[in-house]
Design a binder for these strands. Sequence first.
RNA 1: GGUCCUAUCGUCUAGCCCGGCCUAGGACGUCGCGUUCUCAUCGCGAAAACUCGGGUUCGAAUCCCGAUGGGACCA
Length: 471
Amino acid sequence: MSDKPSPIRVRIAPSPTGYLHIGTARTALFNWLFARKHGGSFIFRIEDTDLERSEKRFEDDIVRGLTWLGLTWDEGPFRQTERLDIYEQQLNRLIADQKAYYCECTKKKLDAERAEQQMRGEAPKYAGTCRDKYVSAEQGRVIRFRMPENETVSFTDLIRGPISFETGLIGDIVIAKNTRTPLYNFAVVVDDADMRISHVIRGEDHIANTPKQIMIGRALGFPEPHFAHLPLILDPDRSKMSKRHSATSVDEYRKLGYLPEALVNFIALLGWHPSDDAEKMTADEIIAKFDISRIQKSGAVFDVQKLNWLNAEYIKQKSADELYALLAGLYGDSDVLFGTKEATLKLLEAGKVRMEKLSDYAAVHDSFMLHDYGLPTLQGKKNIPVAEITENLSKLREMIRATLLHEFTESGLQTAIMPFADNAGRAAVLWPLRVALSGEEKSPGPFEIMAVIGKDESLRRIELALAKLTS
RNA sequence: GGUCCUAUCGUCUAGCCCGGCCUAGGACGUCGCGUUCUCAUCGCGAAAACUCGGGUUCGAAUCCCGAUGGGACCA
């Protein structure tokens, strides 16, 4: 054995039996971070041996999702269905070495055995009927791995420390249906060895598979990788995150208007924490601060509120142009435009603080439109007299008319109007002005609205209010 | 049912390995106050946690044992 450290090689190995799941994305992220942190390689493998449930559209979704998140891989995607010869070769080797054997037990017989074991309160496992008799490949229904009977398998989990299992409790597991149809626990071992994976970083739900895979790997004479089992992402009821309670697919989050940098940042913080308490971090900063030993042992609840906060932070830091491009990509130009492109950019600049998600844009867009309203709204809770409102709005109309076009900005309008508002009473000036412009109890500020809708439209809306007052 | 993992504010977590600096820190959320009328942003502030029981020790969130809770996997 050489002391030369083997290169860091990690992988993400999803099954294309569903859309890219948040949990899978998080596993991918931690593998990616580990690879990037240590100058290693990140390998992408598609575990599509389950032909019934695997679909091309799911594979495409996974590829698209990882790309969108920026989790770029160095090798792959490899597909297990394209590697059948490799598994067959290793399976034959195991059979020749008598470390695996054909089993002809019927499902009915196995079910009966299991029921009996359960009754006796024993751990359900294969009774070993075919273990020591000759069953030909033709007679065999499945191929089983000959599990040693009295061994303790131990491994040191990078996150949890030492973990051990008794092989006697595991039994002779099925590793393939036939030499061309390997099962999960076998294919994984062969692939990880073949791809020279140094660290297997995966979800906690795989802990029980680890001893099986270690034993198969030993039987095959493969070097043993390091293992790290990540805590699970939980729903608010603390069960494993599932569709039942929340959006679980990465693409759903994209469609809801979450930014990839926000999702990556948030997901990184689920079960991991930098030593300096930083919360908002770019991917590069996360890589720099990443340390696998700081990963949490217990599950983390997916708190959408915190994700929303982070997403809002990232939206605020985008320019109007960037937001426009993002929005147009998501909804199409026609749904995004507010009059002209120029006005839309102004709206975006003013309105982005009101968006947690890109999908909030519709409401923001709407908040700059004029809504139907009645006299009581214009008078407000303080019930400002109609005469006073009429007088103030008339004066405002003149001031706005007099405002030069290049001063028709939020700050320009503020400078022009605030002295008057302070004089006549802010509440009696600003409230009616704002309602005249928006028609709403709650809305963006009057200067914000005017700067976005422009001089002509502002005056039109004020005229409308004045007309309402005199009618 | 069996096996395995796990336990600090409502949530994400710092601290735990190397006991005293912890009157337990930060963030989200909540509540309050302020900032150009409302809303949002922004600023300031508040409430809010060491699962329980034993032990070790001068001293335990931190070490040991047990219980209880939660979860995952297999069936």
